[in-house]
Amino acid sequence: MNKLIYSALFLAMTANPVLAEEAENNSNTETADFIQRQVQQNMSIGRAIKSIVSHYPQDVEVVVGTALDLYPEHYKEVIHAAISAQPALTEDVVRIAIEKGITSCTNIVETAINAEPSYVDFVVNAAAHSTPDELNDIVRVAVVTEPNSADSIVRSVAKAHPNKLVDIIRTAMEAVPFVGEYIVETLLAAYPESADQVVTTAVQESGSHRQNLQRILETARSAGLSDEMLTQYALQGGATQEEITAILAKQGHEEEN
C-alpha cells in the first residue's frame, strides 16, 4: 500500500497534469478497494481501520479520508478506531473528519474525546482552528464530555483565542457550573493580568449557585487577589456586598484557625 501511495504522490508532482490526475484517481481507487477488503475480512469497519492505521500511520490522511467517503454513516467507528490506533494523530483525524463535512463539528469533537480523553486539548484546538465560528459550541461539548478536564480545555482554548476569554469562561460554566473554581484557578495562574475578566465573568456565571460563588472567591483569594480586588470584581459580577463580606469573613476566620 505504501509503494502505491508514494508512487502516486511522485507522479502527482510531475509536470504532466493528465498523469497526475490518473495517478491520483488510481491511488484513491486502490485505497478504497484495500479498505473494503479489510472491512470484509475483519467483519467490522472499526477493526479494519484500527488495523490499517496501526500499520500505516503515515497514511492516516488518505486512509481516514477514504474510509469516511466510503462509510460516512459509520463516522463514529472510523474516528474512534483511528484515534485508538494512533492517539498522537488525534488532531489530524479530527481535522480530516471536519474537512469531510460528514457530520457536525460538535459530533466529531464528542466522538474524538470519547475515543481518547487524554488528548482533549488536541481535539478542541483542531476543531477550533478548523471552525472558529463554532468555538463556543466546541467548548460546551468538550467540557460536558470531559468535565474533569474543563480547566485544561479552557486554558488551552484561551491561549489560542485570548480575545475570546470571556466567552470561553461563560460557555464552560453555563455547561458545567461546578467547574468554575477550577477554571478560575488555572486562568489566574496563566493570565494574572486578566483577573478582572476572569473573576467577574465566573461570578456572573455562578448565578444562583451560591456555593460556587464561595469557592470561586476562595480560590481567587488563595491565588493572591486582595479582598478589595475580590470585592470589586464580585460586585461587577452581580454578587451582593453582604454575600461577599460573609464569604471573605468566613475564609479569614478559617485561615486564622
Rank of each mutant, 00 (worst) to 15 (best):
V109A: 03
V143E: 01
A82Q: 02
P117S: 04
Y75N: 09
R140N: 10
S156R: 05
T131P: 08
K76E: 15
E91M: 14
G101R: 11
K100R: 12
I102D: 06
R95A: 12
E99D: 13
N136F: 04
L135P: 07
E110L: 06
N125Y: 04
H129L: 11
V139S: 11
P87L: 00
V139Y: 08
E99N: 14
V123C: 05
I108T: 08
D133G: 14
C105K: 11
E146W: 03
V139G: 12
S84H: 08
I83K: 01
V94Q: 01
N114H: 10
S84N: 14
A142N: 10
D151T: 13
E110H: 13
A128T: 11
Q86D: 03
A85T: 05
I96E: 03
V139A: 13
A150N: 03
E146K: 14
Y75H: 13
V123Y: 02
T145D: 06
D121A: 14
T111H: 03
V109P: 02
S84Y: 03
A126G: 10
G101P: 06
N125H: 06
D151C: 14
R95H: 06
T103K: 09
H74S: 14
V139W: 09
E99F: 07
V124G: 07
V143P: 01
I79D: 01
I96L: 10
T106C: 14
F122M: 13
S118L: 11
D137E: 10
V144L: 14
L89F: 00
R140I: 09
A112G: 05
A88G: 15
A115Y: 00
K100G: 02
I153P: 03
A115W: 00
V141H: 11
V120Q: 08
S156D: 03
T90L: 04
V144I: 14
G101W: 07
N125Q: 11
H80W: 12
A127K: 10
A85K: 07
T111S: 12
G101H: 08
S152Y: 09
I138A: 05
E91P: 08
H74P: 02
A142H: 07
E99Q: 15
S130P: 08
Y119R: 14
E116Y: 09
N107D: 12
D151V: 12
V120I: 15
E146R: 10
Y119D: 06
A81Y: 01
N136C: 11
P147C: 09
A97G: 06
A150P: 04
A128I: 04
P147W: 00
P87N: 05
I79E: 01
I96S: 06
K100F: 01
I98D: 08
T111P: 00
P87E: 02
R155G: 05
K76G: 06
R155N: 12
E99K: 15
A126Q: 05
T106L: 12
V123R: 00
I98K: 08
A127N: 11
P132R: 11
E134I: 05
V144G: 11
H74V: 04
E134M: 11
I102K: 11
E77G: 07
T90D: 03
I153D: 01
A150H: 01
I96R: 09
K76L: 07
I138D: 06
E77T: 10
I108K: 05
